[in-house]
Amino acid sequence: MLALDFQQILSQAIAFVVLLVILRRFAWTPLLRMLDQRREGIERELRETAHQRDELARVQDEYGRRLAKIDDEARTKLQQCILEGKRIAIEVQEQARAQAQGILAKAKETVELEIAKAKVTLRDQLADMTVEAVERVLQKKVDAKTDRALIDAALDELEHERVRP
């Protein structure tokens, strides 16, 4: 066991060097290269992820600011719309009131005209009834035109007396 055999030592050394060359060529170098590539890839992806996260935060802030601005603008326009609506409502109310007053005045005129017409008609009917009544009392037919004139005169007289206090 302790006997040194230089042939065996040399053979073992050569065998190890050959194995080292083979493993270096087929195992360690490809595996180390792959590990380095994977490490670099992971680092690059982590950097990209961090960059995208920062970009996302920036875009979120930007959207937040824009949303706040849009909210303010919407609120301002809503207030303007409310004020405009109130103004239009007041105008409509005033127009309606004016139209109602016109209609009322016209109705009053019509009523007064109808009253005047009714009065004329009533006076005519009353005159006719009076003439007929007088004819029956007097049993005598007088001239119609003359009678009518007399009666109108009498009615005017009566009307004046009634109006006078």
Binding site: Q8, Q12, A15, V18, L19, L23, F26, L31
Partner: peptide, 26 residues
């Protein structure tokens, strides 16, 4: 006489085959 070399070579060949097979299609 050379049994140590024989078994060392066996281990070496085994390692070389394993390395070749493993890294053939990484």
């Amino acid at each position: 006489q050379w049994e140590n070399i024989v078994f060392a070579a066996f281990v070496g060949v085994l390692l070389a085959l394993l390395a070749w097979r493993t890294t053939r299609h990484p």
